[in-house]
Design a protein around this nucleic acid. Structure first.
Lengths: 143, 143
DNA sequence: TATAAACTTAGAGTTAACTCTAAGGTCAAG
DNA sequence: CTTGACCTTAGAGTTAACTCTAAGTTTATA
């Protein structure tokens, strides 16, 4: 049986975060001492690690909550239930990647267009591009 | 001279957002009527569009503030000043992309490992992977 | 027994960039 | 002169996921 600080050390979370997860309904200490101290079993540790793993993959706390409710009652859920959450998350991630790739491309174009030297910014092509307000136009880049 | 609502329509921002940008120090109406209405000139419009463009590229409001201070005093700034901000932003974006690609890869592996069908989740390989807590181990994927 | 480390709770603070609300003033049209 | 659209301000709310604080209690150690 671990106390919250020990669990924190073991999982690499903070005690604060563990309490926050508890408040969010993700985890619960199997036992409390008379004085109210939380005590965690091996099963609890595994659940916290599940949460940590899922969070690291990118699932929201809300997603993790759903995944946990499946986890405790697997036989009443299907693989489809699980892949649906996963697919939705993948779609989110794909969308964010697309946005970031667009930014990346634009930033690269801007950087390539500017000398970056100690010259006065009076004719800086980055500033000009931002002013032209067509800096976002899709372009074909010759690599 | 445009009133804030007209400027909003013209730029695709909301009047709220324009006021927020003003409070953030990004823009200012060139004139106010006696009763306090903001009136914007063409120069103002260009500045708002500069802000919008920069924000869309991914620069933070803070970055935009810096870029604007360069913009109004180009001769006292260098191309290096501008590329530095741009490069920093690009580094941020690159880092975020890396994180997201890692998530994407993991999510894809998870999805590939699971049938996604109406079968009970009792032996769902996604759930097992999350439980195994090695779902995050780097792997080589055969495409 | 004294002290320090670890624990408890409720609740506030953080971050970024808006977004919205309340309560009221202004202006053009009919 | 009334109605409705538009404007003003200050300030609160939103979102996500923590992160921290304050004030007090418990436990282990010397």
């Amino acid at each position: 049986m671990l106390r919250i600080g020990e669990l924190a050390t073991k999982t690499g979370l903070t005690a604060h975060t563990i309490r926050f997860y508890e408040k969010s309904g993700l985890i619960n200490a199997s036992q409390r001492s008379e004085s109210g101290y939380r005590y965690y079993t091996d099963t609890d540790v595994r659940q916290v690690e599940f949460v940590k793993t899922a969070r690291k993959i990118g699932f929201s706390v809300d997603d993790v909550s759903t995944l946990l409710s499946i986890r405790v009652d697997k036989s009443n859920h299907t693989c489809h239930d699980v892949t649906e959450i996963t697919q939705r998350k993948l779609n989110d991630v794909n969308e964010k990647i697309s946005e970031l790739l667009l930014m990346q491309q634009t930033l690269k174009i801007l950087l390539n267009s500017c000398c970056g030297g100690p010259e006065s910014a009076t004719h800086c092509s980055i500033m000009e591009a931002l002013d032209a307000s067509n800096a976002l136009k899709p372009r074909i880049i010759a690599e």
